[in-house]
Write a protein that binds this DNA or RNA. Structure first.
Lengths: 133, 133, 133, 133
DNA sequence: GTGGTCTAGACCACC
DNA sequence: GTGGTCTAGACCACA
């Protein structure tokens, strides 16, 4: 169950990648399981097949999925051993709560995202990435 | 104190807008206060003045700031009465906690953002905006 | 059929906006119809594509047109229901007559405009906008 | 009685010029009469004296006014013989009617101006000035 | 091919 | 000094 927001600033292919990564990390798609075909997923998401193809290509480069010619794409066997596999679930719960609260206060997605981004930027400690003042 | 991430998918001018909105909403910039000049802020953020100018123009259209030709830009007097003024403060605290926790678990900004976006999309109730499957 | 006067004080992008609004309001461009591509219109008007893009962005903010990424810009379906739709047609006729008369008396565009502006300012009832003496 | 719209696209100094030209053409300021001092007019219009000075300089170049050092500015004696003196009054009445009608229909100044400009451009016969399509 | 973002640097109106 | 407009040309996401 992947969701796409065509009005977001995040590129469609990144949203597709995020969605698939999520499905795999949370176990909805297990190692060895077949992914939907490019054309099929594109049709369901109402986007261009080229866009889905790019997402699949990126994920293959990450070794999260593998493509077997003529057979389609599959979740790679090593996907379970990739880093961040378990902490994802805990972080997921963390934000679920905050987002639910925000929604209860009547905030729309765009507003929630803006607040999140503001907070992330305002409190970031990473060096070299942010330019400030 | 505005922060910019030049590697983000979010456009620079949107990040500038977010940063200024935050400063105003949290009271660091009060109604009537002068904003940094376009050229000045651009120099400090290492971005092009046109990009800052676009952000200022957008905020003026939102009536959050006003510009006086030859004098500069100022926080509008009505900025305090605009919707979402105090709700933002509460939401801000909400996400501050989740982000601090995530950082403590060793997650980098990009990972945090991905989890947030995944959660937002996965639990969205908004109609018409999301395309799924 | 949009016309542009590069010597006017009115910004080019405002003239493009006016021209397109006119075409839509008068029915030359109907809801759903594709607008000329940004690059195309820019080439025909001998102005920079960025300038046309700015006009299109403004009109989209007015919900008079919509843009579909990679496909182009289109007259919005709701454009016909927006305020001032038919009033414009009547006002158009009003000024058409006055302008024709002025031309018949040998006045050039710049002179006509000056007289119009003088009259507008001299008889204005709007408060707060005009400074007088 | 000059009126200035600081939100107009037309430069302030052009609006001042228009206003003075109008006063002179309609006879409110007769040849030889003294003009308000630069500082005085600037103060009354709430604009910078430099701006008024530029308007006066332009009008002097047009020979509509003359400045006598240490005494101030005066309507020039030849102002009455300048072209367009009488047709202006007739054109003025022409547009007064159209503008009054437009106002009665609830149109604001900005809308009226836009319609006027659209009409002027759409029906112009001048060569070389307009770029079309 | 489409539109969107960003940069660099110009000129202008206004203070 | 300020902001506003315009140009030229680059790169990217999407169809």
């Amino acid at each position: 169950m992947i969701k796409i927001d065509p009005t977001s600033f995040i590129p469609l292919y990144e949203q597709v990648k995020s969605g698939l990564r999520r499905e795999i990390a949370l176990g909805a798609l297990k190692p060895g399981a077949p992914l939907p075909s490019i054309r099929d997923l594109a049709a369901r998401l109402l986007i261009n097949p080229n866009t889905v193809a790019r997402a699949y290509a990126d994920l293959e480069r990450e070794r999260l999925i593998t493509t077997r010619k003529g057979k389609g794409c599959f979740v790679s066997e090593e996907s379970g051993r990739l880093p961040g596999r378990d902490i994802l679930k805990r972080l997921d719960g963390l934000f679920e709560a905050a987002i639910q609260d925000a929604r209860r206060m009547g905030a729309a997605d765009a507003e929630i995202r803006r607040i999140f981004e503001d907070r992330l930027g305002a409190s970031s400690e990473e060096r070299g990435k942010w330019r400030s003042s």
